[in-house]
C-alpha cells in the first residue's frame, strides 16, 4: 500500500480543483439565452466561501477551483429570475474496487432547494455529467423560472369599463324601458296595440294594484272579519273583462 499512498499524495493537489460548468439552456421561457445581459452572474456561497462568476459567451458559468462543501447557487440576472440550487462538492480520493490503485474522484451533486426550508429538504435532483473530454469538469443546467416584470401599468379610466358595471347596465335597461316603450306603443299597428293592451291587462304584472292582491291588503279589515277590498275589487274588475271576451 505504500506506493499507492505516495501516489495519492502526489495526486492531492490535482484533486483539489473541481471545475463546475453550469449551462443556461434554451427553454420555452428563454428562447435565446444569448440575450441575457452581460451583468448576469452566478454565485456559490457557503460559510466563509463566496464565488462569483459572470456569464460567458457560450451561456455558461465557469466555476474553477471549487473546494469541498455544500453550496447555495444563485443566478443573478436583470431580466430573468432563476430558482436557487444546492450544489454539493465532495472531493476525495477513493480506492478503486479491489484496491488496485487510487483514483481521484470529485463528485458533484445538485438539487433544487427552497428558501425558508431546511437545508436537508432537497428538491428535484439535477443531473450532473462530467463534461466530455475534460477531466474534473462537471456540467449541469440551470433553467430560468420566468421573466422579470418591473413595472405596473396604471389602471386608466375608460368609459367602456364604466359601462360594464352591472348597476349601470340595469339602469340603462330600465331607462330604455321607461323612455322607449311609449314610442314603441305609439308606432304600433292599432290592432296589435289593442291586442297588446288586452294582454297587458290580463297579465299579472300589469296594472299595479289590480295585479297584486297583497298590495292593497288591509290586515285590520281582514282581522275585523270584513271581506278583503282587494279581493272585492278584483271580482268587480274581472267581470267587465269576461264580458268583453264573451262579446
Amino acid at each position: 500500500m505504500r506506493p499507492s499512498l505516495l501516489s495519492s499524495l502526489i495526486l492531492l493537489p490535482v484533486a483539489l480543483t473541481t471545475h463546475l460548468r453550469i449551462n443556461v439552456p434554451s427553454t420555452p421561457q428563454l428562447q435565446q439565452p444569448s440575450t441575457l445581459p452581460p451583468s448576469t452572474h452566478a454565485t456559490l456561497t457557503t460559510l466563509s466561501h463566496h464565488y462569483s462568476v459572470p456569464l460567458t459567451v457560450s451561456n455558461t458559468f465557469e466555476f474553477r477551483n471549487v473546494t469541498s462543501g455544500s453550496y447555495l447557487l444563485d443566478v443573478h440576472c436583470h431580466t430573468y429570475s432563476f430558482l436557487p440550487l444546492r450544489v454539493d462538492v465532495h472531493e476525495g480520493i477513493k480506492l478503486k474496487e479491489g484496491g488496485a490503485g487510487v483514483e481521484d474522484v470529485s463528485e458533484v451533486m445538485v438539487w433544487g432547494t427552497f428558501r425558508g426550508n431546511e437545508w436537508a429538504n432537497k428538491g428535484e435532483a439535477v443531473t450532473v455529467k462530467e463534461v466530455e473530454g475534460k477531466v474534473g469538469v462537471w456540467g449541469f443546467e440551470v433553467k430560468p423560472k420566468g421573466g422579470k416584470e418591473y413595472y405596473i401599468e396604471r389602471a386608466g379610466f375608460s368609459p367602456l369599463s364604466l359601462l360594464k358595471n352591472p348597476m349601470i347596465l340595469i339602469a340603462g335597461v330600465s331607462m330604455i324601458l321607461v323612455f322607449g316603450m311609449p314610442y314603441i306603443m305609439d308606432n304600433m299597428d292599432p290592432e296589435m296595440k289593442a291586442e297588446f293592451e288586452e294582454r297587458q291587462k290580463s297579465s299579472p304584472l300589469s296594472g299595479g294594484a289590480q295585479a297584486n292582491p297583497l298590495q292593497s291588503f288591509d290586515p285590520a279589515a281582514w282581522l275585523a272579519g270584513a271581506p278583503s277590498t282587494g279581493a272585492k275589487d278584483k271580482k268587480e274588475d274581472k267581470a267587465p273583462v269576461e264580458r268583453g271576451v264573451t262579446r
Binding site: S34, P38, V53, T56, E62, R64
Partner: peptide, 10 residues
C-alpha cells in the same frame, strides 16, 4: 461586442 466573458481565471 456583448461584454460577456470568454474565460476567466484567478
Amino acid at each position: 461586442m456583448s461584454g460577456r466573458e470568454r474565460w476567466g481565471n484567478v
